[in-house]
Design a protein around this nucleic acid. Structure first.
Length: 584
RNA sequence: GGUCCGGUAGCUCAGUUGGAUAGAGCAUCAGCCUUCUAAGCUGAGGGUCAUUGGUUCGAAUCCAAUCCGGAUCACCA
């Protein structure tokens, strides 16, 4: 797997620098030059820079001297407008016509977004969103959903064949606790709507009641009842099995509601109940083979040699555990879809679990164990600590969505009542809510914790999704208003203002940023880029009025550049799952 | 205690993978709408990049140690 030199501007510049280096009597690989090209800290110095440190080491000569020699050998032409050695750096200013043809034309035609970026990427499955049924979805699940979805879109853009997968937990003690409370203690009738969220409160109440009755006379009876429920679920018959089937659908309805909102789709749905039986059988088989050993009445693998402790796979009662299921599932994924790589988007608290599972797979002789990756991210917590459905201190996912929707409407869209169709107002509020929530989740580096505070989240100015959407909508309305009065053909050679060129240079980096975000599994770097692009554009927009530009060609070119920004913004936001409104 | 993650402006975060004078947003202060959308733009103040040492032309970035915060380490998922 190789990353292609897809950046036309850098490739051309690397060739020019390479030729200049040759004229000084030295030699440097064009690939190395391409990789070394960067940006000066201040745009006044130049658009691109070539640092001479590596060449300096090679030639045993001062980098400042080499920079001066190279600068002298670069002629100004149709590509390079100015060259300046500044200390150990050679700074380049490029012509508007070159930047325009190498970047903007491709943005306008769409070719920019069809370039080959990565050679021979492996067929990959990305598993994300592993919510439990019978519990309520909260804002923590939202981060996982946004992150996983963005990663999938980034990978597909880079040419990966991606299978998206989800692994909901529909069995286990949490289900039993929920059904137990529902059957024996709940006095409230089942609501007509939002049954999934309501079911989550049944779980929470059940858990708390069981907890509070530990050590009381009720404990024994509770234990018996729970055990009966689990037995029925295991044998797939009885009233609790029927109740499980019915209530599971309520949770699925909630999941689908959230997935529809987020616009995500899963190619594969793996239910925990699907691998329950087969995973135990697999564990028994490897126990017989002698790969898994017995310890204190349980079966598992001693991984202490790898610093991973003991990985239990069969409890003393013969039941499997989470790790047992993941071992079976890992195997099944490669078989079902003929994938070459398997990625798990799961928060960092599972790091130990996955390290154990992957090591167990390796010891089982499963060759693809080395192609399994746990992408760990830090989770979402509340100002007063971690969220826990057990304790009931969570922010439900639909609360965030609903409150954001209301806030956007009240604070920003009320002024359009009467002017716009109500349906457009609702639809726009929906789009902006998605921008605010998804951008908020994705813009933070995955390895950092998010402390969720609803009040802060509902403030949507500055570096936010709606800021990017606003920039798009603004360009869109500009384009519409000027459509009739701008008729001249654009000519990139008219782009002479610094700010215009800075926008062009920024646009030229689009694919580099996306590849980076993809390879590092850090969609936030794309957010940073899009935000910077907007900053530059809004500066341009404020400084240079397009409408009042007198030169017809210049006016048309400025409008074309604006369109490029809108196109790149829409595409970039799409890659992190955020839609754009036509106006706002 | 072992392992892993984090520590950058009052707060929330970037920092082009080792490069030039460390940057944004929020908050504070000062400006910019007889309209290409002010959800915007410009400017000001605000820093011991947790600490100490090391590696080299060069460190917020790499290495080591220490401090602080968090996660995790056998019958939950």
């Amino acid at each position: 797997m190789n990353i292609v030199n897809h950046n036309k501007v850098k490739a051309q510049l690397a060739a020019i620098i390479g030729a200049a280096i040759q004229r000084t009597g030295a030699e440097e690989q064009e690939q190395d030059i391409y990789n070394a090209i960067g940006f000066p800290p201040d745009a006044n110095l130049g658009h691109y820079t070539y640092p001479c440190f590596t060449l300096s080491k090679k030639l045993r000569s001062a980098p400042n001297k080499i920079a001066g020699q190279i600068a002298k050998e670069v002629p100004t032409d149709a590509v390079v407008e100015g060259v300046q050695a500044a200390g150990p750096y050679v700074n380049f200013k490029l012509t508007g016509s070159f930047l325009g043809t190498a970047t903007c034309d491709d943005v306008l035609s769409g070719k920019m977004f069809e370039r080959e970026l990565v050679q021979a990427p492996p067929k990959t499955m990305v598993e994300y969103s592993q919510p439990n049924t019978h519990k309520e979805l909260h804002v923590g699940h939202m981060r996982n959903l946004c992150l996983g979805d963005a990663l999938i879109k980034l990978h597909r853009y880079c040419g990966y064949d991606i299978i998206s997968a989800t692994f909901p937990g529909d069995v286990g003690t949490h289900v039993a606790k929920c059904l137990w409370y529902l059957k024996y203690h709940n006095t409230v009738p089942v609501p007509e709507h939002n049954k999934g969220a309501w079911l989550g409160t049944m779980y929470s109440k059940g858990h708390l009641k069981l907890e509070s009755e530990l050590g009381t006379p009720a404990e024994d009876e509770n234990r018996k009842q729970l055990s009966e429920i689990l037995t029925q679920l295991e044998h797939q018959k009885g009233e609790f099995y029927d109740l499980w089937k019915e209530t599971k659908e309520w949770s699925v309805e909630l999941m689908n509601q959230v997935y529809d909102w987020a616009g995500v789709h899963f190619d594969a749905w793996y239910w925990e109940s699907d691998v329950d039986v087969s995973s135990v059988a697999l564990a028994k088989k490897y126990h017989e083979k002698g790969v898994f050993i017995e310890s204190q009445g349980t079966v598992g693998v001693d991984l202490s040699a790898y610093g991973l402790g003991f990985c239990m796979l069969l409890k003393s009662d013969g039941h499997g555990l989470y790790a047992t299921k993941d071992v079976e599932l890992a195997r099944r994924k490669f078989e079902d879809y003929k994938i070459e790589k398997s990625v798990y988007v799961v928060d960092k608290r599972q790091a130990h679990h996955f390290a154990q599972v992957f090591k167990v797979l390796e010891l089982m002789g499963f060759e693809n164990a080395k192609n399994c990756y746990h992408l760990q991210y830090d989770y979402v917590e509340l100002p007063d600590g971690a969220m826990s459905s057990r304790k009931g201190n969570i922010v439900p996912i639909m609360d965030l969505i609903d409150q954001m929707h209301e806030t956007v409407k009240r604070d920003y869209l009320d002024k359009y009542v009467g002017e716009w169709e109500q349906s457009e107002i609702d639809n726009t509020a929906d789009i902006i809510s998605k921008g605010a929530i998804k951008y908020g989740m994705i813009k933070i580096d995955p390895s950092r914790k998010i402390v969720f505070d609803m009040k802060e989240w509902l403030k949507i100015d500055g570096d936010s999704g709606p800021y990017l959407q606003y920039t798009y909508a603004r360009i869109n309305s500009l384009t519409k208003k000027l459509a009739d009065e701008v008729t001249a053909q654009p000519d990139w050679a008219t782009m002479n203002e610094d700010i215009e060129k800075q926008v062009m240079v920024k646009l030229s980096e689009f694919n580099n940023v996306v590849v980076n975000a993809c390879m590092e599994s850090k969609p936030n770097v794309l957010c940073v880029y899009l935000y910077e692009l907007c900053k530059l554009y809004n500066n341009f927009y404020n400084v240079l009025s397009i409408k009042r530009t007198e030169d017809e060609v210049l006016k048309s070119t400025r409008l074309a550049l604006s369109k490029c920004v809108a196109i790149a913004l829409k595409k970039g936001l799409e890659l992190v799952g955020i839609p754009v409104p036509e106006r706002m």
